[in-house]
Protein backbone atom coordinates (compact mmCIF):
# COMPACT_ATOMS: atom_id res chain seq x y z
CA UNK A 1 0.00 0.00 0.00
CA UNK A 2 1.34 3.41 -0.96
CA UNK A 3 1.60 6.30 1.56
CA UNK A 4 -1.38 8.10 -0.02
CA UNK A 5 -3.54 4.98 0.42
CA UNK A 6 -2.40 4.60 4.01
CA UNK A 7 -3.48 8.17 4.64
CA UNK A 8 -6.92 7.28 3.31
CA UNK A 9 -7.05 4.26 5.59
CA UNK A 10 -6.33 6.47 8.60
CA UNK A 11 -8.91 9.04 7.48
CA UNK A 12 -11.41 6.24 7.13
CA UNK A 13 -10.68 5.00 10.66
CA UNK A 14 -10.93 8.53 12.08
CA UNK A 15 -14.27 9.06 10.31
CA UNK A 16 -15.44 5.85 11.88
CA UNK A 17 -14.32 6.81 15.39
CA UNK A 18 -15.55 10.41 15.21
CA UNK A 19 -18.37 10.59 12.65
CA UNK A 20 -19.34 14.13 13.72
CA UNK A 21 -15.84 15.43 13.04
CA UNK A 22 -15.07 17.40 9.86
CA UNK A 23 -11.75 16.01 8.65
CA UNK A 24 -11.42 18.07 5.48
CA UNK A 25 -9.11 20.60 7.13
CA UNK A 26 -7.02 18.06 9.01
CA UNK A 27 -3.39 19.14 8.84
CA UNK A 28 -0.85 16.38 8.27
CA UNK A 29 1.87 17.90 10.42
CA UNK A 30 -0.22 18.83 13.47
CA UNK A 31 -0.90 16.30 16.24
CA UNK A 32 -4.29 14.58 16.06
CA UNK A 33 -4.66 15.29 19.75
CA UNK A 34 -4.51 19.06 19.16
CA UNK A 35 -6.89 19.03 16.22
CA UNK A 36 -9.41 16.39 17.23
CA UNK A 37 -8.98 16.14 21.00
CA UNK A 38 -8.65 12.39 20.79
CA UNK A 39 -7.99 10.73 24.12
CA UNK A 40 -6.03 7.60 24.97
CA UNK A 41 -9.07 5.38 24.40
CA UNK A 42 -9.33 6.74 20.84
CA UNK A 43 -5.66 6.11 20.12
CA UNK A 44 -6.08 2.55 21.28
CA UNK A 45 -8.97 2.33 18.82
CA UNK A 46 -6.82 3.43 15.88
CA UNK A 47 -4.39 0.66 16.79
CA UNK A 48 -7.16 -1.92 17.12
CA UNK A 49 -8.80 -0.89 13.86
CA UNK A 50 -5.46 -1.35 12.06
CA UNK A 51 -5.17 -4.81 13.54
CA UNK A 52 -8.76 -5.66 12.69
CA UNK A 53 -8.67 -4.39 9.11
CA UNK A 54 -5.11 -5.07 7.97
CA UNK A 55 -3.61 -7.37 10.61
CA UNK A 56 -1.03 -4.70 11.35
CA UNK A 57 0.32 -4.81 14.87
CA UNK A 58 1.46 -1.62 16.54
CA UNK A 59 3.31 -2.46 19.76
CA UNK A 60 2.61 -0.23 22.75
CA UNK A 61 6.04 1.40 22.72
CA UNK A 62 5.35 2.65 19.19
CA UNK A 63 2.10 4.46 20.04
CA UNK A 64 3.85 7.89 20.01
CA UNK A 65 4.51 7.31 16.28
CA UNK A 66 0.77 7.76 15.71
CA UNK A 67 0.78 11.38 16.89
CA UNK A 68 0.05 13.09 13.57
CA UNK A 69 -0.99 12.00 10.09
CA UNK A 70 2.53 12.64 8.82
CA UNK A 71 4.24 10.53 11.48
CA UNK A 72 1.58 7.80 11.26
CA UNK A 73 1.93 7.36 7.51
CA UNK A 74 5.72 7.39 7.80
CA UNK A 75 5.62 4.77 10.49
CA UNK A 76 3.09 2.54 8.76
CA UNK A 77 4.53 2.67 5.22
CA UNK A 78 7.10 -0.13 5.70
CA UNK A 79 4.66 -2.14 7.86
CA UNK A 80 1.84 -1.96 5.31
CA UNK A 81 3.79 -2.37 2.13
CA UNK A 82 2.14 -5.75 1.47
CA UNK A 83 -1.36 -4.74 2.53
CA UNK A 84 -4.01 -4.45 -0.13
CA UNK A 85 -6.41 -1.52 -0.07
CA UNK A 86 -9.96 -2.67 0.53
Amino acid sequence: MAPEQIKNVILDILTDIAPDEDLTDLKDEVNFRDQLELDSMDFLDIVMELRKRYKVNVPEQDYPELASMFSTVNYLTPKMVDCVAS
Partner: peptide
Protein backbone atom coordinates in the same frame (compact mmCIF):
# COMPACT_ATOMS: atom_id res chain seq x y z
CA UNK B 1 -20.36 8.04 21.09
CA UNK B 2 -16.86 7.65 19.64
CA UNK B 3 -16.26 4.31 21.32
CA UNK B 4 -19.58 2.90 20.09
CA UNK B 5 -19.39 4.65 16.71
CA UNK B 6 -22.66 6.53 17.08
CA UNK B 7 -23.47 9.98 15.81
CA UNK B 8 -24.49 12.64 18.30
Amino acid sequence: LRQLRFKY
